[in-house]
Design a protein around this nucleic acid. Structure first.
Lengths: 193, 193, 193, 193
DNA sequence: TATGAATGAGGCTTCATTCAT
DNA sequence: TATGAATGAAGCCTCATTCAT
């Protein structure tokens, strides 16, 4: 199945991009990892850039759907925060490349992603929308204070990202998932009324 | 003066690296921007990598000294947080490259920096130490709760970084500095007892 | 056939290296001579240095097998000396690059070859071993006097090399092959009992 | 004294060229070794090539004058051979660069030297003439057989060069000078009537 | 679909040489 | 004479992409 293979290439690329960065991941390397020929990669993706763009959409959609499932639950927003923190660090443990990709590729290769709409920001739109829904939900339930969305967003995602970075730098003694409660609480304190 | 020129190259590189990322900033581009010959760059810095490393040290030392000055003041830690947020966004307004550099180059080119100590993490040590001092100060004064350093660090720096990222992506309607109070408060809520 | 082309590149490189020396033979020049693109050369050899090393192995093996065939004959060592001198100068007439390579590249670019074993000396091992066999054979047959191997080696190979050098410098009126008898005799006088 | 300094540069260059080869010896390196500025080197020698040419003349004249002094002695040619072998290996022990220069620079950078006359061969003319005188002397005294000059030359100088090469490759257990008698004998056997 | 040899532009870096001081 | 910053051409090598098979 062509679609199967395409996804497989995508996953492999995501992993390699995350590990080595965009520029240090060559098409020959991806091909080798896939046990495919270089030329054949181009039968599935028209360019390396396109591969990177598809990867961000893919990673973003995983995060978005993870958060969506939690959003859909009938639990307090405090619990939602906690659950997302846990889910997030689970992803980091199981498929760190999904998160790392944002840090290693998306953040530093702006030009790659910036041609459609808001500098490629749209690529992560699905996820951002879900975060927004979480906050609105919290406000509606009188759990969260009203505040500017992007400030709250930064506290939430910035904190998670900060821990991720520190984890990647190997300066943490414990795995972030073991601090999930603490992290969720820290975030929650900032958001709650 | 040779030292002057060296610093000038450093600032230019910092700016270009921040704007385009490490790989998309070529030595010829830096040279052109400096109105120097390509070869002459190498009379000042032995390699492009070294240039990037010097840049991180430079950027890090600016942030560290900014925070140190605030730390040294005789004000509450709440105020210190606020002052640092303001200072931070002032830097972003005046020399965004200093901050962006961390986001665009440091975060995503680990291998570039990793040979000395903790994967290049040492390069930012001065700054991190200062953040630690701020937190310890807060705890001592009974303003901050006791909590794991790296969690608090992530809330603090992650939040600032998150806003910076959003600012860089041009999704913010207001300049971050106009939300300084709000951001500082959001951070503070998370840190305070 | 990939192997065919690889050998063809090797021969071309050998020739150019011999003619111009290692440093004055550029990859673009080799590519041009091969009517290939520069990049494609690197599909066959990972570096210019490697090309030079492969060339020395190639040249060395030709000399070694030439001498081996003669060694295997059932003739006096005096005749063997003569036959090798003839064979040697035949090579010089037909493929001078094989011999010149030693003079122009191997002798003078020690650092290029020195990492494995005795400073790259190992690369010529097959040939040297064969020379040693010739001498031992001569001693066993009571034709050659017993003497230090490396002294005898220098007389033998040094003399051939000296003529080669003079030939290359175009100071000889006659082709060395026309003096083969005389050269072989001169060498023989030094080796015989 | 300008002439003094010029000679000093020449000696330094000779040494560096011999050690690293022509291409791996940079003018900045020579300057550094001389504790002079790069530009000032050019006040003494118009180009790097010229420096190399002057070096060969210099090295050649030392060899020539060494041999001339021996030639002028009133001793047998057999003894002359021996004395020259000793003198030659003394040079190698004390100033190996003089000999190495021929092997490392002269042999492999033909293009450097080949513009005046016989491919730069003229540069070594003084020395060659002296060798010729030695042989003619030997023939006149009925010590040496009559044979083609270049064959005899190759035996003589080729053998010395062969040992030098092996010495440089560090494959010899003993210093060549300790085999001087043996080497001189080996050469002599080839030359004598 | 699949292969992988081939292309060629472009990046980093070096260095002989010049020149303003 | 002396300095060393500056120039710029050129070399090695990489790699996204194409194309003949």
């Amino acid at each position: 199945m062509k679609e199967r293979k395409k996804e497989s290439i995508l996953m492999t690329s995501l992993r390699l991009f995350s590990k080595n960065g965009f520029h240090d991941t060559t098409i020959p390397l991806i091909a080798k990892e896939m046990k495919m020929s270089v030329g054949n990669i181009y039968n599935y993706f028209p360019s390396k850039n396109n591969l990177a763009k598809c990867a961000i959409k893919f990673a973003s959609s995983i995060l978005a759907s993870t958060l969506r499932k939690i959003n859909d639950k009938d639990i307090s927003t405090k619990e939602k925060i906690y659950e997302f923190v846990v889910a997030y660090y689970n992803i980091i443990e199981i498929s760190p490349e999904i998160i790392e990709y944002f840090l290693r590729v998306y953040l530093s290769n702006r030009s790659l992603f910036s041609q459609e709409g808001d500098g490629g920001f749209e690529l992560a739109r699905a996820f951002i929308d879900e975060v927004e829904r979480l906050f609105e939900d919290g406000v509606k339930k009188r759990e969260f204070r009203e505040q500017k969305f992007f400030v709250a967003f930064s506290v939430f995602i910035g904190t998670l990202g900060g821990m991720t970075f520190l984890h990647g730098e190997r300066v943490l003694k414990n795995r972030p998932i073991n601090c999930a409660k603490e992290i969720a609480d820290a975030i929650y304190r900032s958001l709650k009324v």
